[in-house]
Design a binder for these strands. Structure first.
Length: 285
DNA sequence: TTCGACACATACGT
DNA sequence: GACGTATGTGTCGA
């Protein structure tokens, strides 16, 4: 923070919780990074997951996620702005096994007809739903070029178990161009040669990785520059405030081509403020 | 009112 | 410390 920065609320109002003067933060202020709401504990999916190591014990998954930019608590509610980016990171673990064991294991789920279907790979997926009617809400992701670059839906990250980096790390990893920094960051987010050589991965016994669709395999799924689709308010009365959940799913892509949800976590109810000037402080009452 | 497009401003990374 | 970037938001016009 420089001397020219507006004084953020948290400092200006220290020791006086009653006074709330929303100072506007500069677009690139590092204070735009804030930890968002906690996600629910992991809900296990409907189809149980098993491994060749212990064929009769269902495997429990534990998914973690954190919002690092774009949501702020106001009173009891978590607020985001449709025009602004949010950042979310996610990872998963099977608490009963190490990464090494994971890589040496093959997985399968049992379908409705009691057939075992092999898992090709696991993936982390980010979606949003409307709290009121359960519908799916489109999310879009920009590049750093924003309007001058392409947009796409947030991708599924083929992933292996990993630990969530802390908030400060995510903040520092944003907009890095220096190649040695990029390499360091990549080692955090992707399964790397280091992971292989550490004996974590022993070349011929990595059964688990054979089915992965690329050799770029995440340990942590990082979603930056995500926004709610601009059309979320299409023909919706402004009078009724809609709420949304962000949901992270751990999916298993099966050998028969089907994706099943192994587990998921979700954010609490979120409010997304639209573009109406009334949602911005420049609309002085 | 809402949206896409364009514009401006300003802290950040190198 | 200059220079190019990234991103919140102001504005215009359909």
């Amino acid at each position: 923070m420089t001397l020219l920065d507006p004084i953020p609320d948290e400092i200006e109002n220290r020791g006086d919780e009653r006074k709330v003067t929303k100072e506007k933060l500069a677009p690139r202020s590092s204070l735009q990074f804030k930890v968002g709401p906690q996600f629910s504990p992991t809900t296990q999916g409907l189809s149980a997951l098993y491994s060749t190591h212990s064929p009769h014990i269902p495997i429990v998954s534990k998914i973690s996620a954190r919002i690092d930019r774009g949501f702020e608590k106001e009173g009891d509610e978590w607020i985001g702005y449709k025009r602004n980016y949010f950042t979310l990171v996610s990872s998963f673990e099977f608490p009963s096994m190490s990464l090494k064991t994971f890589l040496e294991t093959e997985f399968y789920v049992v379908d409705n007809f009691n057939n075992a279907v092999g898992v090709r790979f696991f993936g982390l997926k980010l979606i949003s739903t409307c709290v009121e009617d359960g519908t799916f809400i489109n999310l879009v992701q920009h590049t750093a070029k924003r309007d001058r670059g392409p947009q796409q839906a947030p991708p599924v990250y083929p992933a292996v178990p990993g630990k969530l980096p802390d908030h400060e790390t995510i903040k520092e990893a944003a907009n890095v161009r220096n190649s040695s920094k990029i390499e360091k960051i990549n080692r955090l987010f992707y399964l790397s040669d280091m992971d292989y050589r550490n004996g974590v991965r022993s070349s011929d016994e990595t059964n688990c990785l054979r089915g992965y669709p690329t050799n770029i395999i995440s340990k942590v799924a990082r979603y930056e520059r995500v926004q709610f689709s601009s059309s979320i308010n299409y023909r919706k009365p402004t009078s009724v405030v809609r709420h949304f959940n962000l949901v992270v799913q751990l999916i298993a892509h099966l050998e028969n081509g089907v994706d099943v949800v192994v587990g998921f976590i979700e954010s609490p109810s979120l409010i997304i403020r639209g573009r109406s000037p009334s949602n911005y402080q420049s609309s002085k009452q």
